[in-house]
Computed example of a mutant assay.
Amino acid sequence: MARITIFPLPGAVLYPGLQLPLHIFEPRYRAMVSDALARDRLIGMIQPQRAEEGAPLYSIGCLGRIGDVEALEDGRFNIVLEGEQRFRIVNELDVTTPFRQVEGELLEEDEDEVLAPVERASFEREARRFADAQGYAVDWDQVTRLDDYSLINGVSQIAPFDPAAKQALLEAPGIAARCELLVQLMQFFGRTSDDDKDGATLQ
């Protein structure tokens, strides 16, 4: 178990091996960054279930290590979190700090897991279709050179899905399961875009 300082931010999902730039301006989160820099530079990114103060948290987040940091004169920070490992909340701690802390179980990641060739091909085919439908310009030569782990986590982090869908991707147990869900989400959101449905979300 680990004691984890958490940053509950709606819509912000960090994955192992990826980076998340953040602008820190609220006093409690400036205190959170200062505390992390003085200790282990670790912050747990996790989504609240509702966008309100003290809202319940989803059970799984990602531990990030502060890499680049710019301390501004007025006390704000620009930081880059580097994703290290997913964690599952065991319980939230009763603390006196202005920021929330939890006891968490660190989840093992298999960075060597690979997709079957048919899974990779199916994913790239659906990704091309989705990108074309959304009007995204993608360097597909660069994409084909990415390993499965970087590709699937990278697309999961940047894809324009709603917070519930992004949380489901983070919770997927492994690259193959995350890839399968990504394909389903691209098909789902692609269809709702084509049909011009308002407010379509995956719950």
Rank of each mutant, 00 (worst) to 15 (best):
residue 5 T to Y: 01
residue 6 I to S: 02
residue 21 P to G: 09
residue 22 L to T: 01
residue 31 A to P: 02
residue 33 V to S: 11
residue 38 A to Q: 12
residue 40 D to T: 04
residue 45 M to R: 01
residue 46 I to D: 07
residue 49 Q to W: 06
residue 56 P to Y: 11
residue 59 S to V: 02
residue 61 G to F: 12
residue 66 I to E: 10
residue 69 V to T: 14
residue 72 L to F: 11
residue 80 V to H: 07
residue 81 L to G: 07
residue 82 E to V: 07
residue 83 G to I: 02
residue 84 E to V: 11
residue 87 F to K: 07
residue 87 F to M: 01
residue 88 R to N: 01
residue 88 R to M: 00
residue 88 R to F: 00
residue 93 L to W: 06
residue 97 T to Q: 13
residue 102 V to W: 09
residue 103 E to S: 14
residue 103 E to M: 12
residue 109 E to H: 15
residue 110 D to S: 14
residue 110 D to C: 10
residue 111 E to W: 14
residue 113 E to Q: 13
residue 122 S to E: 10
residue 123 F to A: 01
residue 125 R to Y: 11
residue 126 E to D: 06
residue 126 E to R: 10
residue 132 D to Q: 15
residue 132 D to T: 11
residue 140 W to G: 03
residue 143 V to A: 08
residue 143 V to Q: 10
residue 146 L to G: 05
residue 147 D to C: 11
residue 148 D to P: 00
residue 149 Y to D: 04
residue 155 V to M: 05
residue 155 V to W: 13
residue 156 S to E: 02
residue 158 I to H: 08
residue 160 P to D: 13
residue 161 F to Y: 15
residue 165 A to Q: 06
residue 165 A to N: 05
residue 165 A to F: 05
residue 167 Q to D: 06
residue 171 E to K: 12
residue 175 I to Q: 02
residue 177 A to W: 04
residue 181 L to A: 15
residue 183 V to N: 03
residue 184 Q to W: 14
residue 185 L to T: 00
residue 190 G to Q: 03
residue 191 R to S: 02
residue 196 D to L: 15
residue 197 K to V: 12
residue 201 T to L: 10
